[in-house]
């Protein structure tokens, strides 16, 4: 049960990363490599503020705001200075590595003994249930794990909901059109450059939020924690799209959540069954492949059955 709760929590935290990647890669068709840097940036800023004693909610929001800034820089580099989109992402990501070191003052900030969302959730849970562990359907569960999951789920729900609503507004629709057909939307008088900048700000804000939550959940911020994360985010987006078989806005957002959570659940199963650690990466690759291939296979199968 602990493992299930843990992987759901991690899955939901990384959902925010997946949503960020979804915005840049899918909506804007902008391969934004800033993600690796902004994840660690969110973690770094939040960690430093938490150590200073700031309230965890503000520290978390500040982390997300730092990500928004990073996204703005990438966007401006691309739209104002006409730097290739891949390159501007790489530039900012590289710069962020040093920035993060500078922000933290060292490469690793422990959060074990400071007040963080994790400790707040624990305190709230113990207040609510009256003790530190309860029984859930017969399984013993730490209240802390449960409230942290609830907390993260609420954040993710709020993020998904507001994203959905935002992309249905006039500005949001214009943004989506910027990715789909920039010529057409420019002809309609929408400043596509600004749309991209705002989109990247949104995307990196979500990613930094994800990093901030991850750091608080695992108890430390590390300058290397972002490396390679973007790939997992992208994998979750693709798995999600394959699962829902649709590119409709609402469904893809739900797909992102499902893809990310499912991915972590599958890894948890692999770990629980004690598979050889050396083959873990291979197994995760097989999972991703299966998630990609299965839905279309099932689709083919049902169509054939339909014809018969």
């Amino acid at each position: 049960m602990t493992l299930l709760l843990g992987s759901l929590t991690i899955g939901l935290i990384l959902t925010l990363l997946a949503l960020g990647v979804y915005i840049s890669f899918r909506i804007f068709d902008f391969p934004d490599l800033t993600a690796d840097g902004s994840l660690a940036l969110g973690a770094a800023v939040s960690a430093v503020l938490l150590v200073q004693g700031l309230h965890p909610v503000w520290a978390t929001l500040a982390g997300a705001a730092a990500g928004v800034l990073a996204g703005a820089v990438t966007g401006l580099l691309h739209t104002r200075f006409r730097i290739n989109n891949l390159l501007s992402g790489i530039l900012v990501m590289t710069a962020l590595y040093s920035t993060n070191l500078y922000v933290m003052g060292r490469s690793n900030v422990p959060l074990l003994s400071v007040r963080s969302l994790n400790s707040l959730a624990e305190a709230a849970g113990v207040d609510f249930f009256g003790r530190a562990d309860i029984s859930l359907f017969g399984w013993p569960v730490m209240v802390r794990d449960l409230t942290m999951l609830g907390c993260i789920a609420a954040v993710v729900l709020a993020a998904c909901g507001s994203l959905y609503l935002f992309f249905r507004t006039q500005v949001g629709t214009a943004m989506r059109a910027t990715g789909e057909n920039p010529l057409m939307i420019r002809a309609l008088g929408v400043p596509t450059g600004w749309m991209i900048v705002v989109g990247l700000m949104l995307s990196n804000g979500l990613i930094a939020l994800s990093g901030s939550l991850l750091a608080q959940y695992q108890g430390f911020a590390d300058v290397q924690m972002g490396i390679g994360m973007m790939v997992w985010g992208l994998a979750s987006v693709i798995i999600g799209e394959a699962l829902v078989q649709s590119r409709k806005l609402g469904l893809t957002i739900v797909g992102c959540v499902m893809g990310s959570v499912l991915f972590r659940l599958l890894i948890a199963i692999a770990l629980r069954w004690g598979l050889n650690p050396n083959s873990l990466k291979l197994i995760t690759a097989v999972f991703v492949l299966a998630a990609l291939v299965l839905p279309s296979l099932i689709g083919q199968w049902t169509r054939r059955k339909g014809r018969a």
Binding site: P140, L243, V244, L251, V254, W273
Partner: peptide, 28 residues
């Protein structure tokens, strides 16, 4: 919408129950 998300939901439920089944002995 339900139809489209059903596959994902089923897979998630499946994965979760596999995890929980592995933990059955822990259940008091």
């Amino acid at each position: 919408g339900l139809k489209r998300t059903s596959l994902g939901l089923i897979l998630m439920a499946l994965a979760a129950s596999v995890l929980l089944l592995s933990d059955r002995p822990q259940r008091s």
